[in-house]
Simulated assay, not measured.
Amino acid sequence: MRRKDREIRELDQLENILKECDAVRIGAQDEAGLFIVPMNFGYRLEGEKLTLFVHSAPEGRKVEAFRQRGMVAFEMDCGHALRSADTACGHSFTYCSIMGSGVIRPLMSQEEKKAGLGAIMEHMTGRTWDFPDESVDRTAVFALEVSQWTGKSNQAG
């Protein structure tokens, strides 16, 4: 990271960004090339170990790529605001972001899928939910096991 003064290293600050963001963009590759897909997500943070959870219909390009259990990159950001100035070059943009990479894998069992869906719904709604088996059976759920991640903030006034 070029701007070390903007790097976020404290886990509580990184988790605050995770809590604030409502979408993650996942970059993957398949035989057709590179692609990026925005998705709602949930997460589990155990110590410094971060796992992101996403869900999808059971078919499609991203699902096929994610089922390959390959390395993906991800990005999420929040806290957007334009900081205006008297000159064009004096303008700036505030944000907080997290970027990283890891291996994405499909969750196979009902128990794993329900746990992943539970993490997503808890993150998005702030509460716990029950999931009917029939709905879980029709849903693809993935865990992105993060191997490296970093945070960045440009919030200074």
Rank of each mutant, 00 (worst) to 15 (best):
R6G: 08
A57L: 12
E112S: 14
Q155I: 02
K49G: 04
G90C: 09
G102F: 14
N154G: 09
D130C: 03
V63T: 07
D86T: 09
A143S: 12
E15I: 06
D22L: 05
V141P: 04
I8D: 01
M76K: 03
V24G: 01
M1A: 07
L18K: 01
Q148V: 09
R6A: 12
E15Y: 05
K49T: 14
F53Y: 15
E7H: 10
L144V: 14
G116K: 08
D130S: 13
D130M: 04
A143W: 08
G42T: 02
L34Q: 02
M76P: 06
C89E: 00
H55S: 14
W149T: 00
R69V: 01
A32D: 13
K114D: 06
S135I: 00
R25S: 11
V54D: 07
S56E: 08
R61I: 08
K152V: 06
L34A: 11
Q110T: 14
R138L: 14
Y95C: 05
C89Y: 04
I36Y: 00
V141T: 10
D130Q: 10
A81V: 07
M39F: 04
I36R: 00
A156M: 08
L107E: 04
L34S: 06
E122I: 00
T139Q: 12
M71D: 08
G33P: 07
R105D: 11
K49R: 15
D12P: 04
V141L: 09
Q29N: 03
W129H: 13
T51F: 07
V24W: 06
